[in-house]
């Protein structure tokens, strides 16, 4: 997975922003439009696949990913629409130039080529017949995986040991669902890590938890 979105523990970002109580939901009008367009676009590509949208976000170039928050959403929506041939490559660019008065040719509307895929139910929660492999209190290790595609296993947890804190409802696996390759529902665990396990002996003492899918975990013998 492209690490652009996998920010946990990365350095060089400076101070955090100070919260303000009266921040508007959408600072500018286009942000609301981009938000709504992204949500609706997702629904036009084979079953409103939020994981596919996240995967699209992760594949943006740096300028697009950091082109403001809702700019990022717009670019990802556009990527999904182009990949499923709902829009031709360059269609948005051409229309935007036309809107500002340039004389440009717009590409013809292509024949849509959407993934042949439909979720088995709304949302992400699913039933898994097998009992959870791990029990609350059990020690586990987050596998040191380096998948090529989408995953929800953050880099900074890979290879580290923690303890199962809670068993959460089973859910479809983003790693395959994001690629329209199946739901592969799994048990999900809240795994608790010690900061010194993650960041070394000099780390500030604190605990950290993350929800990890069963196939991300292995027992600690």
């Amino acid at each position: 997975m492209n690490r652009i979105a996998d920010l946990g523990g990365t350095e060089g970002w400076g101070r955090v922003k100070t919260p303000t109580a009266d921040e508007p939901v959408f600072a500018q009008e286009w942000e609301g439009r981009a938000f709504a367009l992204a949500l609706l676009s997702m629904g036009r590509v084979s079953g409103r696949n939020l994981d596919a949208f996240r995967h699209a976000l992760e594949r943006l170039g740096r300028p697009e990913y950091f082109d403001t928050y809702y700019g990022r959403w717009l670019h990802a929506a556009e990527l999904m629409l182009v990949e499923s041939a709902i829009l031709a490559p360059g269609a948005v660019e051409a229309r935007a130039r036309k809107l500002r008065g340039e004389d440009v040719d717009e590409p013809p509307v292509p024949e849509p080529n959407k993934p042949d895929y439909a979720p088995t139910a709304a949302g992400s929660l699913r039933t898994v017949e097998d009992a959870p492999r791990f029990a609350v209190g059990e020690r586990v290790r987050a596998k040191d995986l380096e998948p090529k595609g989408h995953t929800r296993l953050p880099h900074y947890l890979r290879g580290h040991c923690g303890t199962i804190e809670m068993i959460q409802p089973a859910a479809l696996l983003p790693d395959t669902h994001a690629h329209f390759l199946g739901e592969n529902a799994q048990h999900v665990y809240t795994v608790r890590f010690d900061s010194r396990e993650l960041w070394g002996a000099d780390a500030q003492p604190f605990a950290l938890s993350s929800e990890l899918y069963e196939s991300y975990l292995e027992p600690v013998s």
Partner: peptide
Amino acid sequence: LPIELRTEALEQLLTERGLV
């Protein structure tokens, strides 16, 4: 392209085809 303009373009493209 300014992101506002890109947003307007995408909205127009999807609206005129009845997708949004």
